[in-house]
Design a protein around this nucleic acid. Structure first.
Lengths: 298, 298
DNA sequence: AAAAATTTATAACTTTGCGCAATGAAAAAG
DNA sequence: CTTTTTCATTGCGCAAAGTTATAAATTTTT
């Protein structure tokens, strides 16, 4: 049983395919297959059910995979601990970012970060919260930028800042005249939402909970806030945006942004990590860099 | 960084010598030296100070060794978990036993155990509690039979049974006439003890705490209870024995054994394991076998 | 203090194991 | 039924880890 074999096993477990896993591990498929086979022979059990598509772990496989993940974690921490002692910020950082944060935050800190830490390979993956949580637990992400409070048990969050909600109103909507809007003023019929899976959608729905009127008859559900705004512009609807997203609204449309009356309504942007995370120094460098970038732009 | 390199590193850390470590790892010394060197080069730090005899870890080395131990633990648990699932009791069990327990307990369960679990290689090491604790923490023992409550923090104890204290009196001593003896009757001047390091010695001293008279003028301190009894026999002294040790006193000397008046004075024999121990199935099989052997002989 | 022994490092050679390319077999998709 | 996809099998090459032999340095012995 080698570390490589465990890595290959986890790769297959993560993506459900020998050939895809082989690609991710940068080896050929036969090479990976042989190693998995050797591992199964040594342990004396079948770990993966190849008859199913996608390939799924057997009962024993589930247990071995769970323990192998833990083993690789502590194994990698040996190297990591040396880097920490040396004060070196080196290695790969796989960062997940939710789609409603990525376009408004990444460009603020990424350039400075990669310049300051040239020995860190930063991999950014845009994905929704649910996938981020899975990935953090599976150790296929090291950290993620998410909306606070939307993660599971095994995940820890470092709060970064508050992101206040605003209403973005169509020029054709009556609310355009108002200087600020109360939640009570909102008519769900004219509210356009992000598609399912986005935590911002859930937060907006939460915000309007208690309002019993029917949802938007348009039922536009789209994947990016930019699209959402464009739809608002050409209907008589409105949507709710986080402050971040309002920064890049062109001047001629600034009038359409209205703060929510009771200003304390916000989401908290947080840096999420596995509870037993390992890359302490890189991640604290990242956290610091994000906070610095925010301070600079205020 | 390979698992082998970490194993070699731990071997050196445990025995303080490259050549001895190589022997323990069943490879030649150059082979081990090369691997350690490769590991140091990869991590970019010196792990071992070879100028000292015995070889000691550097500051970074200490950290790496600690984390490497943890990594190997979880690594080995992958295999172990499969054995548990298969219900197979296989592998090596390194069992430490304190010297005041070994001669009276081992023969009761070892034969049955090795017969019942032929695929377990049982290695018994007689050593004092302090060394046992170190060995459990360093993962160079899997489990140990000790006197309850004498272990450190990272160690967990499964209590097995009570072992009551008795007084063993010289035929020349006045106490010989008594049917039982109170602690108050004990004159420390005539008490013979085991040598330092034995937990039984400390327990006996604890028992007599508060008594302020001088210790035995003979100051015999010996390493085995058998020797202790022989010395008692040819002086006018006495000693305190656990019940286990009285089982094999010849009939003609049985008169010399006196229970302690308040019968609740005992040590508890326990099976000690590291808090994060791994060989669950073997160890629970062992525990069970010991308990069965006790039941059979009562 | 010199000699012997012990311990770690280095060098040359051998073996083992992992990866690759090519190919076969079986199942899923068209 | 054919085509495509996916995993398994085979044979070959290279790199990594092991071995023996030997050097260098330190400790122990005489």
């Amino acid at each position: 049983m080698t570390i490589i074999q465990l890595e290959y096993l986890l790769a297959v477990a993560n993506c459900g395919s020998f050939s895809v896993a082989a690609g991710q591990c940068f080896v050929t498929q036969p090479s990976l297959s042989m190693q998995i086979k050797a591992l199964e022979e040594e342990l004396g059990v079948i770990l993966l059910d190849r008859t199913k598509k996608p390939v799924i772990p057997t009962e024993v496989g589930e247990v071995v995979i769970r323990n192998a993940r833990e083993a690789l974690r502590s194994y990698n921490y040996v190297k990591e601990s040396v880097n920490e002692l040396k004060g070196e910020i080196t290695g790969t950082l796989r960062l997940g970012v939710i789609p409603t944060v990525a376009p408004y935050l990444l460009h603020r800190f990424v350039p400075a970060f990669i310049k300051k830490y040239p020995r860190v390979e930063l991999q950014v993956h845009e994905m929704i919260t649910e996938l981020i949580c899975e990935a953090l637990e599976k150790d296929s992400l090291d950290a993620a930028l998410v909306s606070g409070g939307s993660t599971h048990d095994g995940i820890m969050e470092y709060e970064l800042f508050n992101d206040y909600f605003h209403v973005y109103v169509s020029p054709a909507n009556d609310l355009l005249e108002r200087s600020n809007i109360r939640i009570e003023d909102i008519d769900l019929k004219n509210l356009i939402l992000l598609s399912q899976g986005h935590c911002l959608r859930d937060q907006v729905l939460e915000l309007c909970a208690g309002k019993r009127s029917a949802h938007s008859r348009y039922n536009f559900e789209c994947g990016s806030l930019e699209t959402l705004m464009h739809i608002v512009d050409c209907t008589n609807c409105f949507t709710i945006l986080p402050e971040m997203a309002t920064t890049y609204v062109p001047t001629e449309r600034r009038e359409q942004i209205k703060p929510l009356a009771k200003g304390a309504v916000s989401r908290k942007i947080a840096l999420a990590v596995r509870r037993t995370y390992v890359k302490h120094s890189i991640i604290s460098a990242l956290r610091n860099e994000i906070l610095v970038s925010l301070r600079n732009e205020e």
